[in-house]
Structures are given as C-alpha cells and as structure tokens.
C-alpha cells in the first residue's frame, strides 16, 4: 500500500514545484501506468516513492511507514527492503557477469550462497539461464533489461518501480518485458510504470496522466 498525502516536490534550482499537492492511494498489487510528456514529472514521482528526493513535502506512507519522516539512513534501509527500480538505461555494471549483477544488491547484506541460489532462480524466471556467465556487453538490450528486472527482484520487493523500461527496446523485446511484467504482477507485486508507449501503458489497470501544467490536484484514489 502506498499512500501519498499533500505531496509537493520542488527542486532547489527551480522556482515552481514540479509536483503540487498530490494525494494518492495505491493499493497493494496494483499496476499503475504513468504517462505524460517528457519533463512532466513522471521520474520525479517515482523518486518520491523510492525515497530518492530530499525536498519532498507531505507524507509518503508505504506499508504504514511514512518514509518522508525517516532519517536518510533508515529510509534507505526501508526502501532497500520494499522498493526496487528498473531504469530505461538498464544500469548494469560492466565488470560483473549476469549472475553477479543480479546478486549485487544483496552482496553487502547477505550470505553469498543464499543470494546465488535466489539469483539462479530469477535468471531462470527471466529466461536467461544460458547467459549466466556472460557480461552485459555480450547481451542484447532486451536481455540486459531482463537482467535488470532480475536484479530488482532479488530483494523480493513488494513494490516495483519502472522508469520507461521499454524506452530503449524494439517491439519484440518490449513484448517479452511486458510478459515478464505480467508474471511479476501475478505474484502480487505493486507495479508503478512510467512510459511513453501506449501499449505498455494500457497494460496497467490505472493510468495516471501527467500534464505539464499543474494537473495533479485534488484527491485521486486508484
């Protein structure tokens, strides 16, 4: 469950707030699509939920915890356990193999053997069993993004944020990713996905449209 109360986001360098007075309730297991033109605030919205912004006003309540009220350290730890993000640029580390990249989020926190068996399961789930020892530069874009999904899932988050995950992919790979997302959704994970792609957006049960001029007024319950 995500509950946003009176959220205002202002970047220090900008005068006007990017997100203004947002009140939103996203139930657990929802699939929400964020659409809207570039610069309308989709990424900023995702960053509010993943606690990456320090200039957020209001309450960001995730599973009964107001992460905006937590210290930076505690917030980071909370997000680490509950929220994962997949990016348009994949953001895999080139010096690590597929398996290692997937394991990476848990390396400082858990026993390597346990992580490794989880990572192998995830590799199977994203269909890259034959690519375990390969390096990112040896994979196609779609494969890389699937590794990124597996990496996001290794912490077993309840909320998965996707910032234009198919933005760099062809339709074929896009469909594979959509199929993957459907399966993830079936497992009960909350998905919040920003996209420009109509087909991708329509996969979500709710579509939240961002306009450049202060759209996000009033209370929205999804």
């Amino acid at each position: 469950m995500i509950l946003l109360k009176n959220i205002n986001v202002t970047y220090p360098s900008l005068e006007k707030p990017i997100l203004k007075n947002i009140n939103l309730h996203i139930k657990t297991g929802e699939w929400v699509s964020l659409v809207g033109p570039s610069g309308s605030g989709k990424t900023s919205f995702l960053k509010v939920i993943s606690g990456k912004l320090d200039t957020v006003e209001g309450n960001v309540i995730i599973h009964e915890t107001d992460i905006n009220g937590l210290s930076a350290h505690k917030r980071h730890e909370f997000i680490r356990r509950h929220v994962s993000t997949v990016y348009q640029q994949f953001r895999l580390l080139p010096q690590f193999s597929v398996l290692e990249n997937i394991m990476l989020p848990l390396i400082p926190h858990e026993n390597k053997k346990r992580i490794q068996s989880r990572a192998r399961e995830l590799i199977d789930e994203v269909g890259l069993t034959h690519r375990v020892t390969h390096f990112p530069h040896q994979l196609s874009g779609g494969e890389q993004q699937r590794v990124a999904f597996a990496r996001a899932l290794i912490t077993d988050p309840s909320i998965l944020l996707c910032d234009e995950p198919t933005g760099n992919l062809d339709t074929n790979n896009r469909d594979i990713i959509l199929e993957l997302l459907t399966q993830i959704h079936k497992k009960g994970k909350t998905i919040i996905l920003a996209t420009h792609d109509e087909i991708v957006a329509k996969k979500g049960k709710n579509i939240l449209t961002f306009h450049e001029e202060d759209v996000h007024k009033g209370e929205v319950v999804l």
Partner: peptide, 13 residues
C-alpha cells in the same frame, strides 16, 4: 560516479 549511483540505487549503503 554512475557506478556509485547505481550501487546506491540498488540498495548499497
């Protein structure tokens, strides 16, 4: 820098 940010984003302290 990018690598460091990524590590932060995937949960490293």
């Amino acid at each position: 820098k990018e690598e460091i940010l990524t590590l932060r984003d995937i949960g490293w302290r």
